[in-house]
Design a protein around this nucleic acid. Structure first.
Lengths: 234, 234
DNA sequence: CGCGTTGGTTACAAACTATAACCACGGTTA
DNA sequence: TAACCGTGGTTATAGTTTGTAACCAACGCG
């Protein structure tokens, strides 16, 4: 029964795995997900070639773990922002969450691309990613549950309410982050916020906003403010 | 001076280039941009290997051309929607433009990913893409020039107005699509619409919206409607 | 103190991009 | 009409990449 520390072999194994992931993250930061080459990592680590296959079964397995780590990072950052925002007005808290998301993404653009783009043709996203994504969106659920969607979102709200009714996992998820709220309202807000975040951040990380004479943060702030308006957040 | 038809050599060359691009698009449709393998295309075309280098200098050069073609396709589709919408109310026209964009993206998700994601580490986006992107956004400029941004977008509007003032190409662009409008207002609307489009469509094409119990089109409609609201479009 | 798991190596297969050298056909032109 | 040379095609080759296979050494555990 391996405890947290484990034997010395396991400790070494964990450390080497961490080093591999660290080197892979450097590759990603410079060249994107496609630049993660196992041989390159091996060279950088001083070992050679197939040794890495003792630690990761394949390149995709390594990428999967990096993706899950990245999701965890952004979830942590967003949760910390929610914590730090304390009991500020809902609109201010929403802006804080969005800023945390944006800052993380713009600080690690290639990692964000890792989350939002299929890195390799053979890669298949693991199912755990949906749980991680829900963890990221949780705080938004909490904040937006304090408002109500406008009439234009009625159709969306109906679909999401039905989703929450028919899928227990979703109901427990929204229950965990917005206990007293109407699930349809909260989900509508979170999904909309997600789309607006990705709209700005996705374009920015890909570089399509470069040279357009405005700051992505300004655009995102406007988008989030409009969302707060239509939700009637104070 | 090559006329439209050109000599027989040029005709043949153009046809083979088109066949290569067609095969590449099939590869993209199934496996994404990373799946474009020159050897695979060569096999499919019955020729072998390096023959393709007589038509495209490199894999990236082929991808570049595909990207420019895809931008052209989107621009055409959106322009056609603007044409078809005729003189309907501005809100209806905006929805028509957004639907055209969404339909194209969801019909060719991998091509959309080609536009919005760096396919390979070595790839460098060509400068023509910005012109193409502006052509796509043009009709949005026209429609949204009929409204005015809300107070929450004041900072963004100021930055974009300054951009239009300092960059002649931008001024002529907005002048072509929204002659009588205030550039800051029109640009704010187009950029915001672009972000909302990409927010929904980007998430959908990557598959992150799968299994979430709602239709991306519904979300996008709500987003566009909210945009029309804050712009005061009839 | 030895035994076996674990980590590491080299060798190899397969796929890919890209270059080089070379051949054959066919359109253009004298 | 006939030579020419440019174009498209070939094979051979170099260099990377992901993986697998076989083998070796060493370290930790009982």
């Amino acid at each position: 029964m391996p405890n947290g520390a484990g034997g010395p072999r396991e400790r070494y194994r964990a450390q080497v795995r961490a080093e591999i992931k660290h080197a892979a993250l450097e590759q990603i930061a410079t060249g994107g997900a496609g630049a993660v080459a196992l041989t390159g990592i091996a060279k950088r680590l001083g070992v050679s070639g197939p040794a890495l296959y003792k630690y990761f079964g394949s390149r995709d397995e390594l990428l999967t773990e990096l993706i899950l780590d990245a999701y965890g990072d952004v979830a942590t950052v967003v949760a910390a922002a929610a914590e730090a925002a304390g009991d500020a007005p809902a609109r201010a808290r929403l802006h804080a969450l969005a800023a945390a998301y944006r800052d993380w993404a713009l600080a690690h653009p290639q990692s964000y691309l890792l989350l939002t783009g299929p890195p390799s043709p053979t890669y298949q996203a693991p199912p755990e990613t949906v749980d991680r994504a829900r963890a990221v969106l949780g705080p938004f659920l909490t904040v937006l549950a304090e408002g109500r969607p406008g009439p234009g979102a009625a159709a969306l709200r109906a679909q999401l309410a039905r989703w929450a009714e028919t899928t227990p996992a979703v109901a427990t998820w929204v229950g965990a982050f917005a206990p007293a709220a109407d699930p349809g309202d909260a989900l509508t807000g979170a999904v909309t916020a997600w789309a607006r975040l990705h709209g700005v951040v996705g374009l920015a990380t890909v570089g399509l906003l470069n040279g357009m004479g405005f700051d992505p943060g300004t655009l995102l702030a406007a988008e989030i403010d409009a969302l707060a308006d239509s939700y009637g957040l104070p």
